[in-house]
Design a protein around this nucleic acid. Structure first.
Lengths: 354, 354
DNA sequence: ATCGCATGAGCAAACGTTTGCCAAGATTGT
DNA sequence: ACAATCTTGGCAAACGTTTGCTCATGCGAT
């Protein structure tokens, strides 16, 4: 029925003027009614809304944005959507966006500097109201481009120390220390660490946390392999690790994808997890509960992260919030599942080594 | 240096008029130069571009969209971003978007009718140039809303038979038949099927394909459990399956997430995959190569799907392509990995049944 | 009865582009 | 040398909103 009337009028332009004409008010009043500005007479407002509903009118956000100067779009730059770490964040971000009547513009840089540049350009061209940057290794000059245009920015881990920039710091130390101590308590002496790409500050931070934790309990941190946060990288890392003597009995990975790759390679090598090799991940993505065996991992709440990022942007944009630099903190902690166990006694193997 | 000059001029409006003033041409010429319209004199064009680069000018897409009537945004409605099936599609879509200078507006309906409605509204308000609908169970009336506004639409599997609508059909039959025959060849007699949510046509199609394939080889298709395409659903499905006698020795899942859930529950039940239970997935998400054991699954290329969808939209929008209904076809085929094996001989168990 | 003031509606400018149309200059053919 | 044609740049309208300002109306106070 609604649709019928729409069809009937479909040759009209169906803009705010058409509404004004039919409701016999000015476009200004229509605009105010639609935006629920309290100065408009309830009677008129009702008349306007009636027409709006009848015609199935939807405001044109680009016209709105043009004159109001705010697009109600937040940009979100991630390194790769296909890493399950991000979709969870996206979903939370999207939920919050819907709630607050924002749109999200997502771009995925796939670690390509060119794509990063394109990302930034797209953000600027669409005149986003703020950008959350969840990719690492972005050129400073690109960031300057955004800062220059006074776009509010949120970084994770590491960002410039500047106004209009918020920073979400992650306390890697706590979770990683717990993980190391957990393995040590299980009598592991040879604990390896698979890092992320070491040109990224966040990867260095995790590595440093590992080294410090090992120092604290007096174990050598010589088994460090550079990974790349991918499934394949994890697989490759374990292959490399097999060459070290004495062998690692526990491996701590700097994200869950790496850990899944390690478990997968252990399967190929016929190494049983956890009885012959203990594996610990990092991030606690949902999938970590569904690996075989379920993954012991360091939790860092993706939902919490997304919430902080969104709120940071909102507070910068609405109400002209604090323009000074703001810092948020995210904690990490160990989640025990089945991928870790007592270290195997040296010399004794459960299976023949084929 | 570029940035310095930008800073210097930052109090200017930096719009097309400013460029025109500085290049001593009209805004019309600037517009044409920027859009590389060939009728503009190369010399002038160069002058314009010089100023554009110096000032770090970026066109305002909303103004552009407003007058040109095309937003260069494609909408993408998915059921849940957090299902790894979708990020792969998103990535391909995004790659194509970057290539063709489009933006993508992603919304996730999380199976909530209210969110679907909001999705559609957002698409219309942003005046997207086309929408790919990768969520099932969307109300017809919502779809009408889009059709009414002449928004080109692409559906997967099942969509209305109408102009401006493209349809990507998936040939479930082939892949599923291969899977069933594969299991049968491994001497499985009791093959179960875990469906998706049965109110979705796509789930029904897969189920029908299973039943037909079982019929073809003369096996009863009585072991059918309704799942929901989630990890948890898969876990729950296997629990249910354990109650049937004689027990299933092979289980075919209607997506990979379900299969991963099944494998996970098998781990909890101390049922070895594949020696005691063979598991087959559907979709071949990247992760299927990294489960333990690696998952035998029916492949349906997500990249191919995304490409078809994008091309379909492009062709509708650019060049005023075919306005009649178009159909694409996507094939499926079985990928063999390690999660399937010869059916266990009845009566003989490798482990004590604790 | 008159004045002042609060309330709420409307006028019109502005936002930053694209593009149809026109005119001026350049080019060609006779 | 002149008319006809072709090129190319500029003028100005348009896209669909928001919003500062003005103005009419009605009310209470004097």
């Amino acid at each position: 029925m609604l649709l019928r009337s729409q069809k009937f009028f479909s040759h009209f332009s169906m803009d705010i003027r058409e509404i004004a004409r039919r409701a016999k008010v000015s476009t200004a009043t229509v605009s105010r009614a639609i935006n629920r500005i309290p100065t408009v007479d309830p009677q008129l407002s009702k008349r306007v809304w009636k027409v709006v509903d009848e015609l199935g009118y939807y405001p044109n956000t680009q016209a709105r944005a043009l004159v109001s100067g705010r697009s109600r779009i937040f940009g979100l730059i991630v390194s790769e959507i296909t890493n399950p770490f991000f979709p969870e964040i996206l979903q939370t971000f999207e939920d919050l966006a819907v709630e607050n009547n924002y749109e999200i513009l997502i771009t995925s840089t796939v670690h390509d500097p060119k794509r990063m540049e394109i990302s930034v350009r797209r953000m600027i061209e669409r005149r986003v109201d703020g950008v959350a940057i969840l990719t690492f290794g972005m050129e400073d000059s690109l960031i300057e481009h955004l800062r220059f245009r006074k776009v509010p920015l949120v970084f994770v881990d590491v960002g410039p120390d500047a106004p209009l920039v918020a920073n979400i710091r992650i306390d890697y130390q706590n979770g990683i220390r717990q993980a190391v101590q957990h393995l040590a308590a299980l009598r592991h002496k040879r604990i390896a660490f698979v890092t992320g790409p070491l040109h990224l500050k966040s990867a260095l931070a995790r590595k440093a946390a590992f080294q410090q934790s090992m120092d604290e309990i007096g174990l050598p941190s010589d088994l460090i392999i550079e990974g790349d946060h991918t499934l394949e990288g994890g697989k490759a890392a374990l292959i490399q690790l097999m060459d070290f003597r004495p062998r690692a009995t526990g491996v701590l990975c700097s994200n869950d994808m790496t850990a899944i790759g390690v478990i997968r390679e252990a399967y190929d090598l016929d190494l049983s997890v956890p009885s012959e090799l203990s594996v610990v991940g990092f991030d606690d993505i949902r999938l970590a509960q569904f690996t075989t065996p379920p993954l012991t991992t360091v939790q860092m709440s993706q939902r919490e992260l997304a919430k902080l990022a969104f709120q940071a942007l909102m507070s910068k944009v609405e109400a002209d919030g604090p323009s000074h630099r703001v810092e948020y903190k995210l904690v990490t902690s160990l989640i025990l599942r089945d991928s870790t166990a007592l270290a195997p006694t040296p010399g004794e193997r459960k299976k023949p080594s084929r």
